[in-house]
Amino acid sequence: MDMLDRYLQAVKFLLPRKQQDDIVRELSENLIARMEDREEELGRPLDEADQAAILREHGHPMLVAGRYRERQHLIGPTFFPLYVFALKMGLGVALLVTTVLAVVTAALHGDPFRRLLEAMLAYPGRGLMVFAWTTVGFALLDFASMQVRFVGDWDPRKLPKVVSEEQQIPRLKTLCELAFVLLSIGWLLLLPRSPSLILGPAAALVEYAPVWRFVYVPMVLLAVATAILHVVDFVRPYRTRSRELTRVAINVASLFLMVFLSQAGDLFFPRVSSALPEAVNVPRVVEIINAGFRIGMAVAAVITAIEIWRGVRRARRWNGAPLTPGSAHARAGRW
């Protein structure tokens, strides 16, 4: 019975600790009874191959022991779809944060290729952390739900409104826009100390006009508001009237800043410094930069005005009427 003992030992190792001895004792009795029956059938004692066949049929020790465990999964089918969604979102945000950090570090310390490579090498570690914490979180949630069964107690009247295809906001689009806005915020925050980020080599020749002091903080605040709006869009990926109006308000404020800047005269002045190279025609450079900014500002103002018009149109068309049952899904061809 050496093989049976080895088998039972292997099963015991993986059994719940409190029940180990009792289960092994029962399994042992059942297997011995079966082996005795087999001996009777064959009319001879069992050899090693016969014993092995019975144990193999009984099941792999890991599988047998696993079936005695009350909890056989980490995250059950109730939370699994939500878990996959959270995991995708977490890994996406980790990638975004990694990229933004790489760009900001590169802007501060230079050597962009090395910074980007370092960030990409750091991503698997961050991704693994996101994976581990998300899994642990959902496993705890699943365990807690088994104790209180709160999923069984829900009210269909509290479900979110049906969202038509027209009202949906693609998450990928939102994520790209959020990445762009976060990069812009990082860039804006670096501008006061690193004018070369906006002026390039000309930063040695020119300096900001005082008007920037008035518009800088509102510009940063508007960018932060836009980022918050994108985060909300990502979490709840459908249009609402209030969010549409907020977007319009942000665009109106941005347009106001652009108009204010375009009315403020020159945005950059020649730098007062004795170290300017004599061969460079500084007034001409400043003139070109100011002209370039005015053109850029005009283009941005037109784009913002179009966005305002589109936003107002969407908000005005909003009727908020409930959809007929199943109509949104039927239109999307999902049923």
Binding site: Q19, I23, E26, L27, N30, R34, E57, H58, G59, L63, V64, R67, Y68, E70
Partner: peptide
């Protein structure tokens, strides 16, 4: 019925 299914089931029903 597989033994690996039946015996744990007995325990579960007892619990």
């Amino acid at each position: 019925v597989d033994e690996g299914t039946l015996y744990p089931l007995l325990r579960r029903l007892e619990t």
